[in-house]
Design a protein around this nucleic acid. Structure first.
Lengths: 245, 245
DNA sequence: GGGACACTTCGGCCGCCGCCGAAGCGTCCG
DNA sequence: CGGACGCTTCGGCGGCGGCCGAAGTGTCCC
């Protein structure tokens, strides 16, 4: 744990990594991957630590620019500081062990199943459904993956027809592949993935389950995804009941 | 430091992050970002710890799949386990504080200057020269950045003319933007960046400085980069002498 | 075979950091 | 205005983990 001596040149990797090196802080970040703002107590209860402990951790994460905070009355809302942070966390998750099976408790298993089916991953869609959408887009030549993922001209047209507008001129990649830690397969991220997710929520293709990151595909969503991408109903319907909040 | 209780679902972010959360291990990884294999003692001397300490750290990093090792005789060579790891480290570096100025010692300043001018960043080119190449490619419409970076058809032709072959069909993005921690600006990474870097080394456009990641542009390199990309001589010649190994 | 050298294992020391509970603000609401 | 509630600060405890040096193992080379 040596930060005293600054080791020559270069950025202080360890400082950032140390923020994520704690189970509690990592759990906070994982929860915040849903892209929304949580209050301090919500997070504390979510991971099972005392409020005082949560406060300290959140302080550290905010100081380290991983989280942004916003104070409203007696609440303190925190969210991920930006897409860069979300990508970092996903990148870490992709290399991490234990993304695989083996949940401990029954309720954890249910939660896991709901998440595995469909969820938001920061600002885009993930889980079985997210991967299925990505696969279908590739199959229909809306996306191209000769090396790396890219939007084809047909894909751009398709998005326009849906009425999905993708912000342009940003630094952020339009199409990025994000490794799914339940499916262990890549799904669509980047500005296109974000725009598509927003569209899906706005038009009611999917809705959130309680306060979690989990999503369910609505009736109209099933119909639309069937029509636009030819997705089968089986993949769109979660195999279990919705789980505890 | 709580790994006992597995916090619900999801990958164990903290396990990976903890590997990079130590100054010594982080320094190892930063050094290995040159994409080459180092021996254990080289690394130990590089960051100033006892060999026994280095051994333990390397063990942890290998066990955690961040490094790959290869044993040759009485040497143990380690290198980054893959591009994913390199990207993770770069991503961490981009968010880290202190990537900016303020070197402590004189020799560190010289080393820093050499690195700032031109260096390898895992398997592609970085530093002033790397950024200049990227900028020139964008200006000449070989790369397009309406949102995110992409190779244009003209860019593909240009590479073919140079005799640069880019491996296809990999998962890795062909073009990726990598944030430069000296320039604080993006430069070309991904399979195209790697292929171009390999070409530059193979054809002698650039050569390594001693055993560091630093590079110098050779005479023929200057001539080629001038002809193919219109780069000015000033940007290609380092402003300081080559520094200590 | 013997000596140099790269690496490893082990034991012991020390400091950091995460945890909690108690107590202290500030905000909201009746 | 008082009580509930969200958040914060502080002190104290405990354990993890990084550091080193000394001693051991394997490899190379003379």
């Amino acid at each position: 744990m040596d930060t005293r001596r600054t080791r020559g040149s270069g950025p202080d990797l360890a400082a950032v990594a140390r923020l994520l090196a704690d189970g509690t802080r990592a759990a906070f970040c994982l929860a915040l991957l849903d892209g929304r703002a949580w209050t301090a107590t919500e997070l504390a209860r979510h991971v099972g630590v005392a409020p005082s402990t949560a406060t300290e951790h959140l302080h550290a994460l905010v100081r380290g620019d991983l989280l942004a905070e916003e104070r409203q009355g007696r609440h303190r809302y925190v969210r991920l500081a930006g897409p860069q942070v979300a990508e970092l966390i996903e990148g870490l998750g992709a290399l991490a062990p234990g993304g695989g099976p083996a949940p401990r408790t029954l309720s954890a298993a249910g939660r896991r199943q709901a998440l595995a089916h469909a969820r938001t991953c920061y600002d885009h869609l993930a889980g079985t459904v997210g991967v299925a959408i990505t696969d279908a887009m590739i199959e229909r030549r809306l996306l191209d993956q000769d090396h790396g993922l890219a939007l084809t001209p047909a894909g751009a047209d398709w998005l326009a027809e849906l009425g999905v507008t993708v912000p342009s001129g940003t630094r952020r990649p339009s199409v990025r592949s994000c490794l799914d830690w339940t499916e262990r397969r890549p799904h669509l991220a980047g500005t296109v993935g974000a725009a598509l997710c927003r569209h899906a929520l706005d038009t009611g293709w999917v809705t959130r389950v309680g306060t979690t990151r989990a999503l369910v595909v609505t009736g109209s969503g099933r119909e639309s995804l069937q029509r636009h991408l030819g997705l089968a109903d089986e993949t769109l319907v979660g195999s279990g009941g919705a789980a505890a909040a």
